[in-house]
């Protein structure tokens, strides 16, 4: 039997507009200063957009900072450490910002000479911030079957919002929150929570989510 939700799930989608902040980094020191001074909307952009912009790539596209440190500063070890930040552990952008600062400051302490090594001209890092527009789609689910059907129809931007951005900006719009609190299915909610969305392409993530719901429906 398919359980009906107390409250239906509204699928949202979102689009971002990008603002140039007029600040750039040409070495590790200026990157650190930039990260310290950046608004959280900039930390959000540089740690999250890469996955969406390069969603066809598999596996693991890193965040912007890791990509720049690896490919432009040619500091592979530090780039790897920054790419390895487990963004799922963080529920606030401030904490992500502090972790970035901590990693870079540690590196500079150990290797002070690397801090002022400049990238070639044209390879500077430009700080950008995102303004996010979230709007409801026509897709609304009252039970898990409808939820699975909606998942198949919504855009990757919608999946992206509910999986990556809702934990930071609107917790009640997380898939797992609704499944646990409105459907009352703790097991499926846990399966959703245990997926690491940062290691999948968006298409794969969508397929995995649909598969989890379908499997659950078959066992009910």
């Amino acid at each position: 039997m398919i359980g009906k939700a107390k409250e239906p799930f509204q699928f949202y989608t979102r689009q971002n507009i990008l603002y140039l902040l007029g600040k750039k980094a040409k070495n590790l020191n200026t990157l650190l200063t930039g990260i310290k001074e950046a608004p959280l909307s900039s930390i959000y952009h540089h740690t999250h957009h890469y996955l969406e912009q390069h969603e066809y790539l598999s596996p693991e596209p890193p965040n912007d900072f890791a990509y720049w440190v690896t490919n432009f500063l040619q500091n592979r070890a530090l780039g790897e450490e920054i790419a390895g930040i487990d963004l799922r552990q963080y529920t606030s952008l401030k904490d992500i910002q502090l972790r970035l600062i901590e990693i870079i400051e540690n590196w500079i302490r150990q290797d002070p000479e690397s801090a002022n090594r400049n990238v070639p001209q044209g390879g500077e890092f430009y700080f950008i911030a995102a303004q996010m527009f979230v709007f409801p789609t026509k897709y609304v689910a009252h039970n898990l079957l409808e939820f699975s059907q909606c998942l198949s129809s919504v855009s990757n931007h919608s999946i992206y919002f509910h999986m990556f951005e809702a934990p930071l900006f609107q917790k009640k719009s997380q898939f797992c929150y609704w499944i646990e609190n409105e459907i009352g299915d703790k097991k499926l909610a846990a399966a959703f929570r245990n997926l690491d969305p940062y290691t999948l392409t968006l298409d794969n993530l969508k397929h995995n989510l649909i598969r989890l719901v379908k499997t659950r429906l078959e066992t009910k």
């Binding site: 689009q15 995102a130 303004q131 527009f133 979230v134």
Partner: peptide
């Protein structure tokens, strides 16, 4: 898409997240 977001942004200056 970007042009339409730009038009919308004129009404929502300074908000990091806008729910429409």
């Amino acid at each position: 898409r970007d042009y339409m977001l730009l038009f919308l942004s004129l009404e929502h200056k300074g908000d990091d997240v806008v729910f429409l």
